[in-house]
Amino acid sequence: MAAAQDTRRKSEDGLWETVKVIIQALLIAFFVRTFLYQPFNIPSASMYPTLKVGDYLFVSKLSYGYGRYSFNFSLGLFGNQIVSCCPFGFDGRIFFPAEPKRGDVAVFKLPSDTSIDYIKRVIGLPGDRIQMREGVLYINGEAVKKERIEDYSDPAESGLRAPVPQFMETLPNGVSYRVLDTEPLGEADNTQEYVVPPGHYFMMGDNRDNSQDSRYPRVGFVPIENFVGRADIIFFSISPDSSLFEVWQWPFDIRWNRFFMLI
C-alpha cells in the first residue's frame, strides 16, 4: 500500500512539474509576443524581392519605442497628455523611443484604416521632399543612386514568373536594397513632389509598380504613432501556393534558404 501511494505521489509530482514547465513557457511566449517581438506574415507582393508572399517574420516592437498600436490593449498610456509628461516619450511613443531610419522596413497601421497592417520601406523623413521622375526616386531634389542589375525571375513564385527588370537602389545614408520595375513609366513613376510633414514618414514598397504606398491617397504620410515596429528577421518561409496544414508537403514547399534571413 505504501509503495503504491509513493508511486502515485511521484506521478502527481511529475505531472505538476510538467504543468509548471508548460505554464512558464506560455508566460515567456506571451511576454515576448506582447512586449518584444511580434510575428507577421507577408500577404502581398508589394515588397518583392526583399520579402516574398509566404514569408513569416519577427517585428521588433522596441525599435521605435512603444506606441498606440504596439499592443492589443491600451492601458491609457498613449494619450497626448500622459506621453508629453513621460520623460522617455515623444510623438505618441514611450520607453526609449527612437525615430525610424531611412531604409528601415517597418510595419505600421494604415492611417485610413488602423485595423489593417502594412509593411513598407521608410524612404522619406520629416521635412523631406520626395518625388518620382521617370521611375527614379528623388529625395530633396537629388536623384537616388539606381543601378541596373540582373533581371529578377523566380519560376516558383505565382505572379512573378517572367524576368522582371531589377535595380539596386542606394539611399543617401548608404542603405542599399533591390527594387523591381515591372512597368516602365508606370502610373506612379512620375509624381508630384511630396513634402513630408513633421512627425510623419514617407513609405514605399520595393516592388515599385505593384505597391500601394505613400504615393497614393489611401496610404499617404504615415504618422510615427502608427508604427508597430521594425521588421528584423525572417524565421519561416513557405511557397504561397502551399498550406501550412499540409505538413507532408513541407519538405518540398518550404523555402529553407530564407530561414533566419536578416531584413
Score class of each variant (00 low, 15 high):
Ala156Ile: 02
Ala156His: 05
Ser158Phe: 01
Met168Leu: 15
Gln166Glu: 15
Thr170Tyr: 01
Ala156Ser: 15
Ser176Asp: 10
Met168Arg: 15
Ser176Lys: 14
Asp154Pro: 00
Arg148Asp: 08
Arg148Ala: 13
Arg148Glu: 11
Leu160Gln: 03
Asp151Val: 12
Ser176Pro: 15
Arg148Thr: 11
Gln166Leu: 13
Asn173Phe: 01
Ser153Phe: 01
Ile149Pro: 00
Pro163Thr: 04
Arg148Val: 12
Ser176Cys: 13
Glu157Val: 05
Ala156Asp: 08
Leu171Thr: 10
Met168His: 07
Arg161Thr: 11
Glu169Lys: 07
Pro155Arg: 03
Met168Phe: 03
Pro163Cys: 05
Pro165Cys: 04
Asp151Lys: 13
Pro165Ser: 05
Asp154Ser: 04
Leu171Ser: 10
Leu160Thr: 06
Tyr177Leu: 14
Leu171Gln: 08
Ser176Glu: 11
Val164Lys: 06
Ser158Arg: 04
Pro172Phe: 07
Pro163Leu: 06
Glu150Cys: 08
Pro163Ile: 05
Pro172Gly: 09
Arg161Leu: 02
Tyr177Ser: 15
Glu150Ile: 10
Ser153Lys: 14
Arg148Asn: 11
Gly174Asp: 11
Ile149Ala: 13
Glu150Ser: 15
Val164Asn: 06
Pro155Cys: 00
Ser153Asp: 04
Glu157Gln: 10
Gly174Asn: 13
Gly159His: 02
Pro163Trp: 02
Gly174Met: 11
Arg148Pro: 14
Pro165Leu: 05
Tyr177His: 15
Gly159Cys: 02
Glu157Lys: 06
Glu150Asp: 15
Val164Trp: 01
Asn173Ser: 05
Glu150Tyr: 10
Pro165Arg: 06
Tyr152Ala: 02
Gly159Ala: 01
Leu160Met: 10
Ser153Asn: 07
Val175Trp: 02
Val164Ser: 04
Glu169Ile: 14
Ser153Pro: 03
Asp151Ile: 11
Ala162Ile: 07
Gln166Pro: 14
Glu157Leu: 15
Met168Pro: 00
Ala156Leu: 09
Val175Lys: 12
Gly159Asn: 01
Thr170Gly: 04
